[in-house]
């Protein structure tokens, strides 16, 4: 397994190299001129040239790309062109807010959806199962924006149960502001997750080993929890692990509506402002996390299913 992991880590190099190249080319093709953004509406020709020099945009493209690679290796992306903030500070400030929202919401939604999917598989074909499928389909057909607008209006404004918007950076204080966005995240995620996990479990339920287990006289509870759930965990884990890297970017809509200063809003703002240092940092770190969690999911296969050997 160690050889496999070492080889996969080596594969990361060309992947990340490709990501940096694509990011660089795309930014230079369609990213606009950051100097215009930075100088605002009054920039003169002379100022534009001077600032281009200061930002290093007058250097040949290959030099600029090599500088980008150096930043990736040292993980020092400098300062934002838009706000002049250190990118490491921006990331450390934003990641706490993003993860405080997404990690608990994601964990709860995964656990809930697995449990509900297991129940649906248990009651397969009954009115409960069918009702649940219809409910999930309806739920996932509604845009997150609609949930946000409705929940915020109803629970924050009308009933006053939660604050309308805001954020407290202290670890103890932030949860007051995060409960409602978390609930919305969970509600939005449940529909699609339940349907996916239910399908996976139903695939397992009709396997020969389940019939054998039942024939051995095991109770339905034991069959479901010990056999079906365990075997269904491989695709479920794949799905979960591949979603983890996206947690660090938070949720743009939830952050915007509930005033959570996370990385989602920061990234969109960077795109809007042609803030290339921030875009570079977010793209590179996002890719690294994605590649890493891909590897984690492969290793997790082997742990969950002893039949799988990593070579």
């Amino acid at each position: 397994m160690l050889t496999y992991i070492a080889r996969r880590i080596l594969y990361v190099i060309p992947i990340l190299f490709g990501v940096t190249l694509i990011t660089f080319v795309l930014f230079n093709l369609v990213g606009g001129n950051p100097v215009y953004q930075k100088l605002g509406k009054h920039g003169s020709e002379a100022e534009i040239q001077l600032l281009s020099k200061e930002l290093g945009l007058d250097r040949p493209l290959h030099e600029q790309y090599l500088f980008f690679l150096k930043q990736c290796v040292t993980l020092d992306f400098g300062r934002s062109w838009s706000s002049n903030q250190k990118i490491t500070d921006m990331l450390s400030n934003g990641i706490g807010a993003s993860l405080s929202l997404t990690v608990p919401a994601f964990t709860i939604s995964v656990l809930l959806s697995i449990l509900i999917a297991l129940g649906a598989a248990f009651f397969r074909g009954t009115i409960i199962d069918r009702g649940l499928v219809v409910f999930c389909l309806a739920g996932m057909s509604i845009s997150m924006l609609v949930y946000i607008i409705f929940f915020q209006y109803m629970f924050s404004f009308r009933l006053g149960v939660f604050p309308i918007t805001g954020y407290d950076p202290s670890l103890a204080g932030r949860w007051t502001y995060l409960i409602l966005p978390m609930i919305i995240w969970i509600v939005v995620s449940l529909g699609s997750d339940i349907l996916l996990y239910r399908t996976i479990m139903l695939d397992e339920i009709f396997q020969d080993y389940v019939r054998t287990a039942r024939a051995k006289g095991l109770s339905e509870k034991v069959v479901m929890l010990k056999h079906v759930l365990k075997n269904a965990m491989i695709p479920i884990i794949t799905n979960i692990v591949l979603e983890i890297p996206f947690l660090y970017t938070g949720s743009l809509l939830l952050e915007a509506f509930f005033g959570i200063p996370g990385l989602g809003g920061m990234t969109v703002q960077a795109l809007y402002n042609s803030d290339f240092p921030v875009i570079k940092a977010m793209t590179f770190i996002g890719s690294m996390l994605y590649v890493f969690f891909n590897l984690v999911s492969d290793v997790a296969y082997a742990i969950v299913d002893p039949r799988i050997k990593l070579e």
Partner: peptide, 8 residues
């Protein structure tokens, strides 16, 4: 266009 493209 995106704002940077538009401005460009």
């Amino acid at each position: 266009h995106t704002w940077p493209e538009f401005q460009d």
